[in-house]
Every structure is written in structure tokens, then in C-alpha cells.
Nucleic acid binder design. Sequence first.
DNA 1: ACAAATTTTTACCAGTTGGACAAATATTAG
DNA 2: CTAATATTTGTCCAACTGGTAAAAATTTGT
Lengths: 210, 210
Amino acid sequence: MKPRAASTQRRTRIQKENEEIILESALEIFSTNGFRGTTIDQIAAAAGMSKPNLLYYFRRKEDMHQALLDQLLTNWLAPLEEMDPGGEPLEEICKYIRRKLEMAEKYPRESRLFANEILQGAPHIKEQLEGALRELVDEKSMLIENWIEQKKLAPCDPRHVIFSIWATTQHYADFDVQICAILAEEERIKTRFEDAAKMLEGLYVNGLKP
Amino acid sequence: MKPRAASTQRRTRIQKENEEIILESALEIFSTNGFRGTTIDQIAAAAGMSKPNLLYYFRRKEDMHQALLDQLLTNWLAPLEEMDPGGEPLEEICKYIRRKLEMAEKYPRESRLFANEILQGAPHIKEQLEGALRELVDEKSMLIENWIEQKKLAPCDPRHVIFSIWATTQHYADFDVQICAILAEEERIKTRFEDAAKMLEGLYVNGLKP
DNA sequence: ACAAATTTTTACCAGTTGGACAAATATTAG
DNA sequence: CTAATATTTGTCCAACTGGTAAAAATTTGT
């Protein structure tokens, strides 16, 4: 019998193992080649199994992609959600930057998968962007507005501040090739995430100080 | 006779016209679908000509892509090149941000084409990144270092400052779908580039003030 | 141990895609 | 106007790709 894709129904040990291996391999390939740029064969090869066997677990190529995106979005929102209304504003923003930068370093493939999806017009996650993500950004924007009113932050457009944090941090995952090409073989290349963290924290602390 | 692709040899009127139409169409499709995601037929359809006719001007799909990338890189470096050693540091940085933001608004397709290429590991422009781009960044980094030594800028890692400007400005082209999803139908969506410019200038002026 | 259910393999196919080729048509130079 | 040259079209194909179907092998529950 065909297994129900990613459903809540009980899955066998083998199913769990193989689905995990497949998604891991799919992430690797999708994130570097894009959706249309990857072939099922590539994923199958990376997963060490035959194409029909892979298709036994995910009936269509799109199913793997969708599964990865769904899984991703939850983790993606977490760092922003953790921004604490009770904390010290500048400290909270620094912590947010650090968390995002850590994610860029630890999960560059996820970042690139996301970037690929957005670049192509977000056909598979448009609703979530307009739904969950938008609501979260609205909520945190209000929080930042409050901080500004309390003179704890310099006046600024909260939404665009958030955008700029996304941009600068994800850049280190998405544009890593470019960054490494520029930093070249020097010592700097090894410390790029540290260096980025220092520079960004300095920029935002001074830039947003009331 | 087959025309020499993008060579310096004399080209007929028709050649010039058609090559332009083709590249324009190719940019449109490549930038939204990625390299592997676009088919020659799509480009041909967009250019209003038959596939074999298109292949008469560009023998391979890759030739169009390469032509676009080569053309792009020159324009891409221009705004940074214009950064004036004789100017007022904070003013020069603001002007650079504004120029980059203008490019993101005016040429989002070029930005996305570039982003796609980098995301996939920059297979076609690695050399240029390590060559021309790196040299330019080195040069401008030294300039910024000088400004810092002259106490005209707060201490910061110049290279990472440049990266952050790239990231924040290009973000408005590359992640436009996401930004629009979040700003939604509100008035804000129309003024997003203005708002971004204001926010970024404030951030960098305060953040880098010595 | 044995039947039932699950997993894997083998063989296959239809649609798409990049690209070749030569014939037909249009343009230009003399 | 004609010959040479440049452009366009129609036809074709081999490789690739997503996906199917059924048989074979393996695992699992009892």
C-alpha cells in the first residue's frame, strides 16, 4: 500500500527513515539548483535509492518541495517570534540579528531554498506570506512602534527595519559564494560570520539609539 | 552565414534589432524562472519569433544567459565605482545607497538574474567576482578605512558595510513578492522604495557617524 | 513459520526540450 | 536586375525527465 504523504497516520520505521533521507537530499539539491533545476534522479542519487523507490514515498516532485517549504516556514518565523516585548529594545534587536545570523550560518540551504522560492514569485507559499508572516510582522512592528514612542528607539519605519535585518543576515547564506569570492583566501573568510555580527550590531545599536 | 555572437564584427540592422529583442525577452524569462527553469520556446514566444530563428542569433541557450550576465556586471559595478574619495563620507554612503535602491526599483529583473546566478553558486561569473568585483571592493574598502582613520566615520569593517548595503538594497528587488505580501494593499506598498530609502539613510547616517 | 502488508526493483512510456539541418524567403550590394 | 548574402521557416531527432505499472523481494504481525 502506498504511504500517505506526510500525514499524521502511523508510519513505519522504514518510512520515517527514508522520508527523512529523501527530504535531506532534496533540500541539498533544491537549494542549489532551484525547483525546476533539480531532477528526481539527482535527488534519488543523493538519497542512495532508485527513482521509482523515491517516488514511492513522494508521488510527485512537488510534494517533496512543498514538504520542505512547509517545514521551513515554522523555523523561519521562530527568531522573530522570540523578540521579547519585556526586553530592552536595542538588546532585543541585537539578539534578533544574532539569531538570524546563526541560522544563516547553520542552515544556509534552508535560506537558499526560501530565496529561490521568493525569487520565482513565491508560487507555493504566497498564502503563508500574506497570512502568518504578515501577522507576525504586524505584531512586532507595533511592538517596535511602542518602543519608539517610549523614546527607547530612534524613530524609524519598523517594517523596513525588519526587512533590512532579514536582508543583511540572509545575505550571508544566499550570497555566500560572492562573499567568499571577495574575501578570498584571507583569514577574513573564516571569521566572516563573527565580523558580520560585530559590524551589524554596531550599525543597528548606533543607528537606532534614540 | 551565421552571425558572430556579440562580437565586434559589423552587424546588420536586423541583427542588432533582433538581438536586442531576444535579450530583452530572455532577461524577462530568465529572471523569473531561473536558467534551467526557462525554455528556449518561452523566450522565442516572448520575442515573437520561432525557436530556430532565435537559435540563429544565439546558438545556445547558455549564450543568451552569458550575454546577459556579462552586460549586467558592468552596470552592476558602476554605483560603487562612483563613490567619490573627495566627497563627504556619510554623504557618499547615502548617495551609494540611493543609487543602489534606484537600480533595484528600475532594474529588478537584472537584480533577480544576478541573485539566481549567485544562489546557484555563480558558475558563470565566478572569475569576474574574484577579479573585477573583488578589486573594486578592495579599493573602496581602503577608501572607507581612510575615512575611519580620519575620524570621519565610526570604526567598522568596510567590506561588511558594503555587503550590508548590497543586501538591503537588492532585497527590495529580489524579495519584492515577500515585501508586497507583508505591506499588503495598504498605501505603504506604493511608497516602499521611498520608505526604504528614508529608513536606510537614517540607519547608516546614525550608525556610521563617528 | 507463514500469510499479509510493505518496500524495492525492473522495465517502460509519453511529453518536453535543446538543438541540427536544409530548404525557402527576404535583403542588400553592385 | 541579379547575384551574393542574410534571415526565416519547417522538419526532425536524440536525450532527458516526470511519472506509471507490475513483478520481485523484504519485513512484519501472529
